[in-house]
């Protein structure tokens, strides 16, 4: 363990040796977290906009819940989803436990508050007079919301990055509701835990390297997109 570079070299060799299994869990990581982020986006952007732009009964409670949700430990979410999807649980008939669907559900619950909360604060940061101006130009409430989301697109992108970051590196929930089943619910993070537990540190490090490279590539891509979207 002394020479980290040496370990890294071994790690890459190991990766190349067991390529198909590694690619499979990498793909599943992307699929599960990508789908969860997609769902969080579809629900979180409108929710964040609603909370930023409208006042209604229970709004403050909802905001407090979202802020709480942003700090929930993934394993706690996983436990709740497990109890929900267990065959003895209320949604047991779905037979989702230990499937990617269960993992997507859990990760959606983890990332939704992040996406909604950060979207809300982004929109709240926009000039309130702009809303009035857009309305005066004849925008319907929906059109105002769309324009504001576009106006604060940098903030929305950050919300999505933060939401993705919260789940791609998350292990507690997917381990519990996915079960880390080889070939069906094993993702990068649970594989890392497994290999560490087994004492296969080289492999654990190699997988960590894959996870890092993946998130780095995604964040780099988003950064470039952000620059393109906001360039002068």
């Amino acid at each position: 363990m002394n020479d980290l570079l040496e370990v890294l070299r071994q790690a890459i060799t190991l990766l190349l040796e067991r390529d198909s299994a590694t690619w499979e869990i990498t793909r599943l990581s992307l699929y599960v977290s990508g789908a969860a982020l997609g769902l969080s986006t579809v629900a979180g952007l409108p929710l964040g906009a609603l909370l930023a732009l409208r006042s209604f009964r229970g709004r403050r409670l909802l905001v407090a819940l979202i802020y709480t949700g942003m700090g929930l430990p993934p394993v706690a979410v996983g436990l709740c989803v497990y109890l929900l999807l267990s065959r003895s649980g209320p949604l047991g008939d779905l037979e989702w436990l230990f499937t990617p669907q269960a993992m997507i559900l859990a990760q959606t619950i983890i990332s939704l508050p992040v996406v909604a909360g950060l979207t809300m604060t982004s929109i709240q940061g926009a000039d309130p007079a702009l809303r009035v101006q857009l309305r005066a130009l004849g925008a319907s409430p929906l059109q105002v919301t769309m324009a504001l989301l576009w106006e604060v697109r940098s903030g929305v992108l950050v919300a999505l990055i933060a939401g993705f970051g919260a789940i791609i590196s998350e292990v507690g929930a997917v381990m519990l509701v996915g079960g880390n089943i080889a070939g069906s619910t094993r993702v990068l993070t649970t594989a890392i835990v497994l290999e560490t537990r087994k004492g296969q540190f080289d492999l654990a490090l190699a997988l960590t390297f894959v996870l890092l490279a993946l998130t780095f590539a995604i964040n780099m891509g988003t950064l470039l997109l952000q620059q393109r979207l906001t360039r002068r």
Binding site: D127, A129, Q133, R135, G138, A147, W150, E151, T230
Partner: peptide
Amino acid sequence: LREVTTVFQRPLLLDT
């Protein structure tokens, strides 16, 4: 609503 519009004191342009 769309028959009437306002130009405000500040231009309030969109970031585009």
